[in-house]
Amino acid sequence: MSSVRALVGLVFLEIYRKKDFYVALILMAVILVYASQIEVYNFENIVRYVREIGLMLIYLFSIFLAVPLAARQLAAERDQRTLAVLLAKPVTRGQFIVGKSLGAFLASLSAFLIFYSVFILVTLAKGKMGSPVNLIQAGYLFSLSLLVVTAMASALSYFLTSPAAMTLAFVFYFLMSLFGARFDRFAEESVGLARPLGKAVYYLLPHFEFFDLRQRVIHDWDPVSWGLIAIITAYAVLYTALFLFSGWLKFRRQPL
């Protein structure tokens, strides 16, 4: 566990020593503050579009931080020639995979929480923060999506090059976030190879739309049930474990 902890700490230092996070934070804050200052016909209390812009930026920036961070870990260690030194220490390959993936998740989660706090402050300043329960649920579920997407990007990086892993992770994430709910319909209406492919995508890829509660936050819908949150948590943990396990199967006997 201490090895995993040390690896997590290393990834943390990486994200906060590099420029990406600060660029994203500043850009997001500036856009959000700018958007919140817009008065339409001198109405000051219009907030839903601010929520929509804010959450979209937060989700996008967090994903754009998380995926490359996770997908680059193995490649960076190879390129920096630090991998051999690291694995010559009492660190198993499993610990390496878990530590790196968990590190990418926790680092991007911390970035997301900072973004989210800025978002909450901005909406609070508009006088309409919205339901705290909705905010907590939305933040929690998105955190789970970060867990799954970093595990996915990490696992892909053991099979593919880092850019390919990144690209595929982005494609899967946005494909399932935007169209995941509709893939079974697409499959049913398709012919030939598209039909089984569509079904395979629908049932095999993680459904990232499960983790997206933005509609409820933006439009002040009632929160979802905590039982559903528990089910989605189990779903996220299962996919994370599957991804990390597949990465371990590939990496465990790979000569370095």
């Binding site: 201490s2 090895s3 902890r5 040390a6 700490g9 290393l10 230092l13 990486e14 020593r17 590099k18 920096q80 020639r81 630090t82 051999a84 030194v85 690291l86 010559a88 220490k89 009492p90 660190v91």
Partner: peptide, 29 residues
């Protein structure tokens, strides 16, 4: 591996860390 120390040929170490942090990291392992 707990009883081994390894100095590779032409190794590099984490450029964003200081020597102090590198040694702390490896020591933690």
């Amino acid at each position: 591996r707990r009883r081994i120390g390894y100095l590779p040929e032409e190794a590099a170490y984490y450029r964003f860390l200081t020597p102090l942090e590198i040694l702390r990291f490896y020591g933690a392992l």
